[in-house]
Amino acid sequence: MLVFLIRRIAQSAIVVAIMSVLVFTGIFAIGNPIDVLISPEADEAERAAAIARLGLDLPMHEQFLAFARNALAGDLGISFVHGVPAVQLVLERFPATLELALLAMTIAVLTGIPLGVWAGLRPDSKAGKIIMAGSILGFSLPTFWVGMLLIMAFAVSLGWLPASGRGETVEVLGVPFSFLTANGLKHMILPALNLALFKVSLVIRLARAGTREVALQDYVRFARAKGLSPARIVGVHILKNIMIPVVTVLGLEFGSVIAFSVVTETVFAWPGMGKLLIDSILLLDRPVVVAYLLVTVLLFIVINLVVDLLYSLLDPRIRLGGAKA
């Protein structure tokens, strides 16, 4: 276990280092932020002052060294556009993305598992086939297009739900959240549904495949022979055994929900990290792009590590790599 942890952390450090070099050199080598950030009317002196302030006059490797030194201290530079520290900007937007992702995951679990188990118990029934067809559709539909259709249906035509923004927020420990106010929750419904769609399809497939496999096992047959009610067989014997793959995949997919929120946030103008990333890419706000990517990479590494550890706790048959001796 310890060997595994040490190896994983070392590996993660290498990944972060490679990513930062790649992102830094790439972003700093292409595009000229001077043209974008400094007003064309500025005179030579103003330009020079701005370039020196942003550190754009130094050679590339010196810029990188300064960047790496500061990054280790948690300072990824100051946003060219907003004038505040980039990391702070990203972290300020993080709660909005997090609450959206969590609501989407909740929707995925609460709808995906019952539908998947239903389809798994009766794979040849009409309902089972409809559920599977729906899940294929869910995989095929591009997220952003579904988001637009949701806006068109529920915001433009019916006028039931708002199409953009976060609505009212409540501060908990100094962090604003939308899901605690009725208005905020209303704003969350459409984006969360949009973000959940792909995961619902995934959970349906996992739950269906698991149920089909588990339902044929001897212990299920035995439980039935014992005269247990179908509800108990499904609720206890089947559900418990299909949860391991579902939990693992959901854990791993949590990261991808955060990554995909880039799309949903852009469609619904949700002020999270993802929208910040796209805005920053388009405005060539390099420190923010770098900060977003490094924060996300770190987040991913932590999520993957936690899921691996949880996996071995949930299923004692799994032995973590590294414990070969």
Binding site: Q11, V15, M19, L22, V23, G26, I27, I30, G31, L252, G255, S256, A259, F260, V262, V263, L277, I281, V289, L293, T296, V297, F300, N304
Partner: peptide, 24 residues
């Protein structure tokens, strides 16, 4: 295979976004 594992642990859209932010 380690390289493959590491790459597949990140969602495709994130990697593509990074690359396109770099490439233009």
């Amino acid at each position: 295979m380690r390289l493959v594992d590491i790459q597949l642990s990140f969602p495709a859209i994130l990697i593509a976004l990074i690359l396109l932010a770099v490439l233009g």
